[in-house]
Nucleic acid binder design. Structure first.
Lengths: 124, 124
DNA sequence: TCAACATATAACGATATGGCTATATAGTCA
DNA sequence: TGACTATATAGCCATATCGTTATATGTTGA
């Protein structure tokens, strides 16, 4: 064991800057509303590109592009039958991530709401 | 209870598109290497802007700008004494998030490595 | 009040990214 | 093979964001 972080012990606190780039890139995948909506749709069950396009009210190339990123990151998988491509959640831990963010967001918004309500009487 | 998601039950699977924008925005805060490096530094203990600037090898305005985003998101707090501003982690759950991403990333990279090693003999 | 220091903001250029339209690729069926 | 359908890619424009330099704000101490 030397001073540099080794594989398997990925505590973000100890990562090198280059590794943090990878972590940031992974966050960036989830930093787009449309991609989150795609994940949300796939949470209900697998869907093909045309279905997603219709549901999300955007263009087919746009869906394809976003799907590619989600697939490259390993969040989404694909299954092709004939010439239609069915997409599905390949790593459901992505929802743990999203829900952690949701929780933090709720806490944040609640604390803001608190500030607007009865200043000086926090917590009741 | 009506058909729209209500406060407190923030399962990402059920959020409206507008709510997903907020979730995406929160992910976006963590989608920058320099911001992750700031968080990393603050994990060791509070630091002021000048110290961060020196450590991160960038300009002071750049650090200030990123700190602002981290503060607005509630991840980082500030304490001002005299004219120096000390920053610290205000929501340490941000590291849970980062570590979840790290874990997923490691798994992803490991599975890629697997593909390069002995094709056909996966899992051993 | 003035000089000095620490931090914040403004304004800019460079780059990245989202969404579009047009087109290419690839699979199915006749 | 050729028409049709589903998806992917290319190319483009608009916008957002990073990092920089210049400057403003604000705090301390003489």
């Amino acid at each position: 064991m030397n001073r540099k972080a080794r594989s398997g012990n990925g505590k973000v606190e100890t990562l090198q800057p280059e590794a943090l780039e990878l972590v940031a890139a992974r966050f960036r995948i989830l930093a787009e509303p449309l991609r989150l909506r795609i994940l949300q749709q796939l949470h209900e069950g697998e869907k093909n590109v045309s279905e997603l396009t219709a549901i999300l009210q955007t263009t087919q190339p746009n869906v394809s592009k976003h799907l590619r990123l989600l697939q490259d990151a390993g969040f989404v998988g694909r299954r092709q039958t004939g010439n239609t491509v069915y997409c599905f959640i390949a790593d459901s831990s992505v929802f743990d991530l999203c829900n952690l963010v949701c929780t933090g967001l709720e806490a944040r918004l609640a604390s803001h709401a608190e500030l607007l309500r009865s200043p000086g009487r926090r917590g009741r």
